[in-house]
Nucleic acid binder design. Sequence first.
DNA 1: TTCGGGTTGTGAACCGGTTCGCACCTAACC
DNA 2: GGTTAGGTGCGAACCGGTTCACAACCCGAA
Lengths: 343, 343
Amino acid sequence: MVNIGDVARAAGVSRSTVSYALSGKRAISDRARLRVEAAVRELGYTPNAGARALATSQTMVIGLLARFLEDEFAPAMLQYMLGVSNTARELGYDILLSTEEDGTRALRRMSDSRMVDGVVLLNVAHEDDRLPVLRTAPQPGALVGLPGDCTGVDVFDLDFEEAGRLMVDHLFRLGHRELILVSQPEHVVERGGAYVWRLQGAAQEAARARGVTLHATFGSSRQPEIGRDLAAVLDTHPDATGLILNNEAAAAALPSVLHERGLAAPRDLSVVGRYSEEFASTFSLHYTAVESAPDRLGRMAVRQLVRRIEGEIAPDDPYVVRFVSPELVDRGSTGTPPARAPG
Amino acid sequence: MVNIGDVARAAGVSRSTVSYALSGKRAISDRARLRVEAAVRELGYTPNAGARALATSQTMVIGLLARFLEDEFAPAMLQYMLGVSNTARELGYDILLSTEEDGTRALRRMSDSRMVDGVVLLNVAHEDDRLPVLRTAPQPGALVGLPGDCTGVDVFDLDFEEAGRLMVDHLFRLGHRELILVSQPEHVVERGGAYVWRLQGAAQEAARARGVTLHATFGSSRQPEIGRDLAAVLDTHPDATGLILNNEAAAAALPSVLHERGLAAPRDLSVVGRYSEEFASTFSLHYTAVESAPDRLGRMAVRQLVRRIEGEIAPDDPYVVRFVSPELVDRGSTGTPPARAPG
DNA sequence: TTCGGGTTGTGAACCGGTTCGCACCTAACC
DNA sequence: GGTTAGGTGCGAACCGGTTCACAACCCGAA
């Protein structure tokens, strides 16, 4: 394998000159620079990443700690990963991926052995055991998802409260006065998926403030259970005219459930969901929905992380907690409520 | 940061003794070993990955080149990624992930700069531009997906021919004589997704051999188009009693389409799919299906790759091309054909 | 002519590991 | 008692980059 010494010899200069010529960190005469560049081209030289990392203590690699939990929608995680990975590459960084069950072990390994310059944590729980480890690490970290304690890290998340209010408001303005909310399975909340709770709490509060009845329920994350859950909740609340979905499986099952009951959206029931359209379009009809914008969150997290890594942010600059405002996209599955309840 | 010299000083031995004590590559007295271990524990020492890579020319990292193409089912890719990542970790390797559009650039970067010991390529096309690059790289490579030319790499793929035959046979044995096959969009084939073609070709041949009529069609990968595609193809072939799906979006849309027409599986129509149940269960009813086993393929690819990396396979040992036999899982959506065609 | 300053190139040290070759000690054997 | 062999530990070289301190050179100003 060709190294910097070979290039130096071929160009008739010293190793340090080659290094400076390539990095541009010091002025080098055109003559020398051109000869170095020619030698590099001719020999096909690429610097050894390990050696460079050793010398500069910079790896140009970002650790990505994904976390796949049962009963959560895995494809959504993929979108976060893509946002992170693509943005990192644009900024010159590669991604070291961990999908290990034990996130703390992975984090410790990456951090202690200096494989990464910084870390992005996905699917952060309210009490996330990776956070104490991250706080003691020398590398900066950025989170996608809001933990209970945000000290020492930059945090990015969808404004789930706003999303809850937005959906209730949207239906309220159309004239609906009795709504159903189907969330993800209750396990998700119990395990620390506070976003479910944040959306639900804000929705309930908004409903109360407007004098709207909101039936908050949890649904399964799988077929055919979620179909039965939906049918059951529609039976239980026959006068509800609006349906809010914070559950991807429910969005997929809904078309059949509606057909089975002879209902159509928005004629008999107005439907609004909270998910990312990108994947939903494969397996669900295009319901009016609040976009969860996973790629945007991943992008923001990496941007901030890189700014910290590269020292553009002073070390004592305050850490940020930034909420992305959700946007409601009308795809025609909501309208004014029917004259009589559909049930 | 604590390095091997600090440990040596604390333990009262030389740096080389620390190295040998930790690696076990040479006999070290119990007394010295215990003191080294104590020092490591006390100081919290972890070897620097870059330095180790430089010294050993081994990074303990595997490159993972994913490839997300339009009109293909992204969640399926995620399962391959998980299979690869988890298996790699079990074997002591970390994953450097690339989701870059330009796979050849990513591959060249990882390989030339020695960031990885080997590479796994996902979603390999018939004519894959990453392959020529991989063949000239010093690191070994393993593919998931069958290219036109398999020289110089280990290849793993589902036996799509067998899958096609299996599904036709299954329906034939139940008594069906006119079938519909809905594949992924035609773009996928044109772009080099030969697996679509392999399954379809084998299915057609099996049908011909048994005197069965098979209507081979392509469907969209999105909603609501795929729903319309399904409705149209059922209209066009009203006498067909069996439906074969090689299209994930179709599996998601089918329940609604059947409801709309007052059909039920398997009463009026027998349905058999080809996909991975793991994700399908979120968004589709449980149809009888041929499992595509993405995690198993990822696992096999990594196992073989690591064997090559670690020299367990002699360099002149032949490269393998291994097909996983698909398994048909009966979930009750197939049965004997109805007395009269449902149309 | 001499001095000072800026430009350009170089050698050497350093990053933090691994590994080779040698030296030392002890025990065994002739 | 001297040689040999095996078990241990150590110093030094090496992996392939980066960067510091210094030197050589050229130019213009005093």
